[in-house]
């Protein structure tokens, strides 16, 4: 069986199975699934089905479209807000789903333990990530007028990675928390073309 399909500009197909060619609308990258040739039988039994499923699930390689942010870029971005002052673990609660169902929209919230008074409050909350093309996610500025040091938003994550939240107090101290998230790949997506 030979079937013509539009060729992905990013890869050549190996084998006759087109299953692995799914293109993604991933926010930062085109993903590529390494072609594993699967022989297509006339009937799809349970084992064959599982083989197909495995072909979709297996060997997912992420092809960076642009350069990754690196651990060094992350460190540099953090240094920009802290000015090199020490970061202490604690006070910050960073909430992200441990298993992300789609990296396009990932609910995130940051809560900081603070009385939010004139003398003792959180002035800013910064969030960074390790593997999107750039380390910045957002910076938010707060004041005692907020009553509670809290922010919730939704972010994009291109890949399984570390997310870091930093809280800056009115006195210029820095507290931090981080989370490791796993980003799963969507199935049955459409072609970009």
């Amino acid at each position: 069986m030979t079937l013509r399909r539009p060729e992905s500009p990013f890869r050549r197909l190996g084998g006759e199975s087109g299953l692995s060619e799914a293109k993604s609308r991933d926010p930062f990258f085109r993903q590529r699934r390494k072609g594993r040739s699967t022989t297509l039988g006339a009937t799809v039994g349970r084992r064959a089905f599982l083989a197909h499923a495995a072909a979709v699930a297996a060997s997912v390689t992420i092809v960076p479209f642009a350069a990754h942010a690196t651990p060094e870029a992350l460190a540099a971005a953090i240094k920009e807000v802290t000015g090199g002052k020490p970061l202490r673990e604690g006070k910050v609660t960073l909430d992200l789903p441990p298993l992300v169902e789609n990296g396009n929209t990932v609910p995130l919230s940051v809560k900081v333990d603070s009385p939010m008074t004139a003398d003792d409050h959180i002035k800013a909350i910064h969030v960074f990530n390790e593997k999107n093309p750039q380390p910045h996610v957002f910076n938010a500025w707060l004041s005692p007028a907020n009553g509670r040091a809290f922010i919730a938003t939704r972010i994009k994550l291109a890949d399984a990675q570390k997310v870091v939240a930093i809280a800056e107090t009115g006195k210029g101290e820095f507290w931090t928390a981080h989370a490791e998230v796993i980003v799963t790949i969507a199935a049955c997506i459409e072609d970009i073309t």
Partner: peptide
């Protein structure tokens, strides 16, 4: 001003923000 945020391309489409105020 009670809240200010600087967003990057890593904020999801159709941005959502939630915060508190007294």
């Amino acid at each position: 001003e009670i809240f200010r945020m600087k967003m990057s391309p890593a904020i999801a489409a159709n941005p959502f923000v939630s915060f508190a105020a007294i």
